[in-house]
Amino acid sequence: MRTISRWFQRNLLRIYALIAFTYLLIPVIYTIAFSFNNGGRSNLVWKSFTFDNWLNPCGAPQVCEALGNSIKIGFLATLFSTILGTMIAFAIGRHKFKGRSTTNLMIFLPMATPEIVLGASLLSLFLTLKVNPGFWPTVVAHVVFCISFVVVTVKARIASLDPRLEQAAMDLYANEFQTFRRVTLPLVAPGIAAAALLAFSLSFDDFIITNFNSGTMTTFPKFVYVSAARGIPPQANVIGSAMFIIALSIVILGQIVGRKRAVK
């Protein structure tokens, strides 16, 4: 009895973590499991195991159109927000200038603004300007909320750099441009890659801001939300599961590459 209770005490934190992880992953496991369900259109109750949904991911009407839009928007929003955000991060992280704290505030504000306010305010601007909501307004909206996250991520990486590396490059007669291209940029690159990945996943998963600014265009989260009332087709689960597997592989691959580099 005593040994059991002592074992329990020693492993309390581990048991707790195990429960927390179960809680975190239950809906993910559920989503993946039901992608193999032969449940028909609504996919509410478990019927029988099938690969059909995976072999025919575009089988439900509109689901692949929605996915295509989400990928296009995610790609463009990632591209623009990563470029703009990285430039701002370099300005803040590497330079002293007048208006630095104002800029910091300007980066912080979009993160402190609830999504619904961001979405509603942009829509009201587009309506005032007589711009119809749709593809490009959605891209613009996504860039707005992604920029701040890119800045924060890249800035953290810049702050963690050892300035002596750049000084060494300069000592070895590299000019400023060479130093930046050959030393600074490669060192900051992992931060930029992480920021881009974050921006893409934020954009891909966004529903609230998209719902305000996309008009009649459908995206994957919008598709899921709209079909929730009738029951979601299993194809949506297939896409959700595939995204999960792809993203997880990218992260794991990144970790392995990072570790190999560290060993070298």
């Binding site: 992880f21 975190l24 992953l25 239950i26 809906p27 993910v28 559920y30 989503t31 993946i32 039901f34 996943s201 891909f204 998963d205 529903f207 994957f220 989260p221 899921v224 939300y225 929730a228 979601i232 949506a236 689960n237 959700g240 599961s241 995204m243 999960f244 792809i246 993203a247 997880l248 992260v251 794991i252 970790q255």
Partner: peptide, 18 residues
Amino acid sequence: VLVVAPFFTSFLLRTIAW
């Protein structure tokens, strides 16, 4: 990675799963 992993399936799918 496991903490962030749920993010990779759409949050709407997870909410509906609940």
